[in-house]
């Protein structure tokens, strides 16, 4: 059964990191990302890495899972590191080997620096995904972008769309499962043949799925109207986020990290 796929990378839990106000989490993450670009020495990265280790321990997410977030972008990391090798300057590593003269200590330093930056960036920003449910994340984004409503940006509509999409993903996955089985029972073959044949074999699944999605959409629209839905104007919110002491502590920690990174930048 494919019913139980996890949405995004949310890793349910009860840790202080999970319980943080999602808005604070998002803002801190944003600040962290900016900070990584401010860092200009390895000591600064050491401070950032320490923060990540601390957060990993606090959130109780297995370190292996945390490191997995690097995997999809491993190729880009290697690629970036490789090209940075050429832009270092400084003295060559192997003075006597002629064909390796381009490899300089400066290049290696640059490559390591850039890879570290990307790795920390990936790991740091996925924490928000690991510890916040997609629903809360959408909600937090809607609230943070709230001021944009004044500029006629359809923030509420976008968030509503995301919420409904998330609500219906399990339903539609389930439905796909059922339709696939029904067509299999009629002898449909999804497993053999070349790509074109296989793509064509998907039609008996896709057509009913789309028809059903439209039917659901129509019924949902009626149901929403029955519950007095009329866009974002004049709505109140059921969920209220309030910054608690743990959020203030988090903000303080982030300020200390930022201050130390800047100090290190200036001193070194």
């Amino acid at each position: 059964m494919i019913k139980d796929i996890t949405l995004g990378q949310y890793f349910p839990g009860d840790s202080p990191i999970h319980k943080m106000d999602p808005r604070v989490k998002l803002l801190i993450t944003l600040e962290f990302v900016v900070l990584l670009f401010v860092v200009n020495n390895f000591y600064g990265f050491a401070v950032c890495a320490t923060l990540i280790v601390a957060v990993t321990a606090l959130s109780k997410i297995p370190p292996k899972t945390v490191l997995k977030s690097i995997k999809p972008l491993l190729f880009i990391i290697i690629f970036t590191a490789f090209f940075n090798l050429f832009y270092g300057g400084g003295s060559p590593v192997f003075e006597s080997v002629g064909w390796l003269r381009w490899l300089t200590w400066g290049g290696i330093r640059n490559a390591a620096f850039m890879s570290l930056r990307i790795i920390l960036l990936l790991v740091g920003s996925t924490f928000v995904m690991y510890t916040t449910s997609p629903v809360m994340l959408t909600d937090a984004i809607e609230r943070l972008l709230g001021p944009l409503k004044k500029l006629k940006v359809p923030v509420h509509e976008f968030a509503m769309m995301m919420t409904i999409a998330m609500r219906f993903i399990p339903t539609l996955v389930d439905e796909t499962d059922k339709i696939t089985n029904a067509q299999k029972a009629r002898g449909a073959d999804f497993e053999t043949g070349n790509i074109i044949r296989r793509a064509k074999a998907l039609i008996p699944i896709l057509v009913p799925l789309i028809v059903s999605a439209f039917r659901r959409a129509e019924e949902l629209a009626d149901a929403m109207e029955c519950r007095c839905y009329n866009g974002g104007d004049g709505r109140t919110r059921y969920k209220i986020y309030s910054c608690k002491s743990r959020d203030y502590v988090a903000i303080c920690v982030m300020l200390i990290v930022t201050a130390s990174v800047i100090t290190l930048n200036v001193l070194i």
């Binding site: 409904i164 998330m166 659901r216 149901a223 519950r227 839905y229 709505r235 109140t236 919110r237 059921y238």
Partner: peptide, 27 residues
């Protein structure tokens, strides 16, 4: 008829609050 097509939120209590949010009921 179809309960699946009239539940909007991904958590039970948030769904029940949906109409109240629309009506602007205080928190």
């Amino acid at each position: 008829q179809n309960p699946d097509n009239q539940i909007i939120a991904t958590v039970v209590d948030e769904d029940i609050a949906f109409a109240l949010e629309n009506l602007g009921v205080p928190h």
